[in-house]
Simulated assay, not measured.
Amino acid sequence: MDLFKPDHLLISRAISTLEKTIIESGIAEIRLSSDMAELEVAAEEANKHPVASEMFERAFFTLPPNQLLWIGLYDEKNKCVCTCACKYEDIGTWSLQHHMNEYIERTWPGVGDPGTFCKIKKGSGTYASSVNGKTVYVGYGHVEPEWREKNLLGLSQRLLLLSAFYQWEPRILYGFMRPSMISKGYHLNWGYSLSCPKAFIWENPPEAPDMRDLCFVAVGTEGIRLLASDPLMVGTNRRLESMKK
């Protein structure tokens, strides 16, 4: 029995609180979907590529509805102004360290001739060596510039984390962030409780310079319980304000 596992009623109440807050910010509709084609349409509207990182590219992955969850926030003109997405992974007895190394070396373009992919140094990612079983990867989020003062991405990311946990009950939900975002507390605002610098040590680095120095961010069962207990993150917001002073 997991003493820290939040019950579905607590998560449902937190989801309702977040949805109410998002609607009060001026959003006309919140869509929670498992349809990849709909996500691609939303990304195209925002002129965003890749959709939510290479992990959601059809060229590399097939994502049936039971493995995909994404949130779209729509304005009164039915335009998607904010998106975030995640995908379910059951990696069995593999460690998350092994799993990440496997897919990154097959999907992230690396320095070199066209068709070259990244290469990770042996031993990189040991922070994830003890995690296996059910996990959820959370991709990039996007919000249109005119909506960025309303913290919609933070609210929708928290909504996504809670919705994904409600549906799949993974051991961990994780993603990657740049150090500049970590220093500003974005990972806390989005609902993560853990960050590890230098997510990967590269033998052949990513082609995109801004992907070469990443932090691993994650939240587990206990963190989800805390988030569900305070979805608007009143306590965390006080800490974030103190970081800005």
Rank of each mutant, 00 (worst) to 15 (best):
M1D: 08
M1I: 02
D2L: 06
L3K: 04
F4M: 12
F4A: 15
L9E: 09
S12F: 14
S12G: 14
R13Y: 05
A14W: 05
I15A: 03
L18T: 09
T21F: 04
I23A: 14
G26P: 02
I27T: 12
A28N: 12
I30F: 10
R31N: 12
R31K: 12
R31D: 14
L32G: 06
L32F: 08
S34V: 09
S34D: 13
A46T: 05
A46L: 04
P50L: 07
P50G: 06
S53E: 09
E54G: 12
M55L: 02
F56W: 09
F56Q: 11
A59Y: 07
P64E: 00
P65Y: 09
N66F: 03
N66L: 06
Q67N: 06
W70M: 10
N78P: 06
K79S: 02
C80S: 02
V81Y: 07
C86T: 05
G92Q: 01
S95G: 05
Q97G: 07
H98F: 09
T107P: 02
W108K: 00
W108I: 01
W108P: 01
P109T: 01
V111Q: 12
D113L: 07
D113Y: 05
D113E: 07
G115K: 08
C118H: 03
K119A: 01
K121D: 07
G125Y: 09
Y127W: 06
Y127A: 08
A128N: 05
S129G: 00
V131M: 02
G133P: 00
T135Q: 00
T135S: 01
V136Y: 04
Y137P: 07
Y137D: 04
V138Y: 15
Y140L: 05
H142F: 03
E144I: 11
P145T: 07
R148A: 03
E149V: 15
L153V: 12
G154A: 07
L155T: 02
S156Y: 02
Q157S: 07
L160D: 06
L161A: 06
S163G: 06
S163R: 04
A164H: 02
F165V: 00
Q167C: 09
W168D: 01
I172W: 02
I172Y: 03
L173M: 00
L173I: 01
L173E: 03
M177A: 03
R178A: 12
S180N: 11
M181Q: 14
G191H: 03
Y192W: 14
L194V: 15
C196T: 15
P197F: 11
A199W: 14
W202E: 06
W202C: 11
E203S: 14
E203C: 13
E207H: 10
E207M: 11
P209S: 11
D210L: 10
D213Y: 06
D213T: 14
C215A: 08
F216E: 05
A218Y: 15
A218M: 13
V219D: 09
E222V: 03
R225V: 00
L226N: 12
T236G: 05
L240C: 13
L240V: 11
S242A: 13
M243I: 15
K244Y: 12
